[in-house]
Every structure is written in C-alpha cells, then in structure tokens.
C-alpha cells in the first residue's frame, strides 16, 4: 500500500506535474477566474491521480487537459446557475461564411496591443477560445486538440478557422471603439 502510493507519487511527478502550467492556463482562460482556475486544477489533478493506473501511456498532457477542460465546463455551468451559458455548442461547425466574408484590413491594426487582444480572446465563446489557447499558447498539434476537445480531427481545423476569424472580428470591433 505504502509502496504503491510512493510509486503513484513518482508517476504523478513524471507524468502530470510537468503540465501544471498548461492545466492552469487552460482553466484560467476557460473560467476567466483566478480562484476557479485553482479549484479546477486541484480537482483535475486529484482525479488524474486517482485514475493514473488507467492511463496506458501516450500523451499525458492531452489526457490531463481533457480532465481540466471537463472540470472547467462543469464550473462554467455551475456558476451560471439556472442561466443559460453560451458554451458554443449548437453553432454550426461548417458555417464558413463568416470567415469567407471577412477581409478587413488588419495591416493597419496594432496587433501588438496586448490588452485589446486579450479582451477579444476573452469575448469568444469557450469552444472557440479553447482551440486558440491550445493551438497558439500550448502549440498543440491538431490530433491532441481533437483529443482534449473530444471532436474529430477535421472539426479542429474548421473550429480553428472559425475561431481565428471571430477573433479578428472581435479585435477589429474593439479597436474601432477605442
């Protein structure tokens, strides 16, 4: 018992501990709340630890982030109470019209404006925000994003297209209002 616990701690240190930053970053972006992100990561880590024996190798980071994502959505749903929360489900994935229609001149925009960019990303519905976070900030390949977000590979690409187009629109909107 004692020994297996020590062994589990060792596995935790090897497999999960290196991804605590990634876990916190995703939770922080999804919940947009510091203490909620703490809560989510703590719960996720305990869950991951509990089911560590079921982890059969492969991508530990994607596995942990899947749990973090689920916990974050649970928190979003719970914190919204009875109010409807716009997670982003139900938005047609194949609706490419938006990105096709968009050809604003982004050249003129100061994309180095960190505050605006952050605000724009925060404004996206969670399912689009998360693909940006996983791709741009975590630099994850599509196949891992597909695992974490539980969608087919093709959907990752269309969702990312949609998310990037939405981010651009949101950024332009904020930029003009400034």
């Amino acid at each position: 018992m004692r020994l297996s616990h020590t062994a589990d701690m060792k596995r935790f240190d090897e497999l999960l501990a290196p991804h605590m930053d990634a876990a916190y970053n995703l939770a922080r972006w999804l919940t947009a709340n510091e203490s909620a992100a703490h809560d989510v990561v703590q719960e996720s880590a305990l869950k991951a630890f509990k089911f560590l024996h079921r982890f059969e190798g492969g991508n530990a980071k994607a596995w942990l982030l899947t749990i973090v994502r689920n916990e974050s959505y649970n928190w979003l749903k719970a914190s919204a109470g009875h109010r409807w929360v716009a997670i982003g489900e139900g938005i047609p994935e194949d609706d490419m019209a938006l990105s096709h229609a968009l050809t604003p001149e982004i050249d003129a925009i100061r994309t180095e404006d960190a505050a605006l960019l952050q605000q724009a990303l925060k404004a996206l519905p969670p399912v689009f925000r998360e693909v940006i976070v996983l791709k741009e900030l975590e630099d994850m390949p599509y196949k891992d994003i597909a695992k974490v977000t539980d969608v087919p590979l093709g959907t990752v690409m269309s969702r990312l297209a949609r998310a990037r187009a939405m981010l651009k629109t949101e950024f332009m909107k904020l930029y003009r209002h400034e």
């Binding site: 930053d21 916190y24 970053n25 922080r28 972006w29 992100a37 982004i106 994309t111 180095e112 404006d113 960190a114 960019l117 952050q118 990303l121 940006i132 976070v133 791709k135 741009e136 900030l137 990037r164 981010l167 651009k168 950024f171």
Partner: peptide, 13 residues
C-alpha cells in the same frame, strides 16, 4: 493574428 496571440495573450502559469 496568430503571432500576436502567441506574443501578447498572457500565458497563466
């Protein structure tokens, strides 16, 4: 846009 996000969106450690 992707570069801007990489460079300026905060990464929360």
């Amino acid at each position: 846009l992707a570069r801007a996000v990489k460079a300026h969106a905060p990464y929360y450690r």
